[in-house]
Design a protein around this nucleic acid. Sequence first.
DNA 1: CGATCGTTTGAGGTTCCTCAACAAGTGTGG
DNA 2: CCACACTTGTTGAGGAACCTCAAACGATCG
Lengths: 235, 235
Amino acid sequence: MPMNPLANETCLRILDSESGTDFDPEPDPLARLDADGAAKAYHRGQEIYRPEDPAEYWYRILFGVARKCALLADGRRQIVDFLLPGDLFGFAARRKRHFGVEAAVDGTLVIRYPRRQVEILADSDNRVGRMIRNMAFEANARMQMRMLILGRMTAVEKVGCFLTEMADRSSEGPSAPILLQMSRYDIADYLALSIETVSRALSDLKRRGAITINRKRHVIIADRKALGGLVAVGT
Amino acid sequence: MPMNPLANETCLRILDSESGTDFDPEPDPLARLDADGAAKAYHRGQEIYRPEDPAEYWYRILFGVARKCALLADGRRQIVDFLLPGDLFGFAARRKRHFGVEAAVDGTLVIRYPRRQVEILADSDNRVGRMIRNMAFEANARMQMRMLILGRMTAVEKVGCFLTEMADRSSEGPSAPILLQMSRYDIADYLALSIETVSRALSDLKRRGAITINRKRHVIIADRKALGGLVAVGT
DNA sequence: CGATCGTTTGAGGTTCCTCAACAAGTGTGG
DNA sequence: CCACACTTGTTGAGGAACCTCAAACGATCG
């Protein structure tokens, strides 16, 4: 079945205790935390947390885009994940993180919860615990899909997967035109490509009629099948 | 600080509720499950579960090595993780998995727990829930490190990281000689390289004196610094 | 208007993959 | 015991994919 590995996975990243988890009536138990949360706006490039910061908070994007990234000493950068509205992030076992998170666009709005509060809530209400576990499992599955993309796909396939992922994660639905809020630099570091290759891949997809592009960051998927990197059965 | 990103992360993959997690006295609450578990031996290449199987069990490796992998329709394969003794795997939110797991060596011994039992235990004992959460967070951090390796490292760096990872995950300690139980094929698919490139990278490291190799699968790290891909601070 | 940033496109170079041959180890059957 | 097939791993030659360097373009902003 030809499908983008990340498609239809991402819509349920957070806040979706329904879908398949058994017996979980309450839509969002974590909402109870919002009273303890502090929201803050960030401009593009501003750090939300650093890898060396003690992991005393969990965060949730309310608006905008953030990037979770790792840096090598010689400047090589890998964006591990894009964080979109609704996404919860910042957990760490053992209080230590290994990645930094920065706003990828101006005006990114982030709410912050004290980790202790969340832990206490999780301990007192096992639906919360289960929800957090499932969230972590989902995140894991996504990361694993991304490893397949990073490791075994060509440049054009990577960009195709990226576009369908963004379409599927869009709040406006998977068929809406895609507004790429992040720069080509960010896309390149997300896909482990150079910006030039990203640009060429986009031009290539456009030439083939798989997408149309207006105003540089506005992409419409014309032929979804022409984009997806096919994921196979597991024999 | 020059360090292998995966080094010293992996020793605490499972069974380590101590280390940094706050207030968790019991060493392994999951051990209580062993009564419900069924152990089984697998030969090399035998499937432990398929991606399309309903996720009704969790598994733990007792002996041997397993590989979690994804397959593309045209034969491209990505090994997402190697599972070593002690590693717990097979969780999925929403009962659906996206990867298969197969034994990578003959005689791999795996114990299987009914998912319901684990869930019930997690709900009844919030130390278990916390432990599972932390496990998932650790797994996540590892996957993210692997993305950096897959995306932004050269072939030789990848192989170097792989060797130090295997050394650090070895039950015999990080300084013991490394017995590579998996084939070059598996290593290649783990690192997203071709087998030839893996072979050449190993020869290269040997030529430089970073490692010595006897009997093809027996590697001794001579100069650990010469292997590691340096992970940088997060600005 | 010039300056800057983000993006595209081209030319050339590097890394890694593919194809191929070969070597070493292992098991099988005569 | 050897011959043989088979698997696994190494090494070389050539080619493809992607990166680097460079130039140019458009948009935005002072």
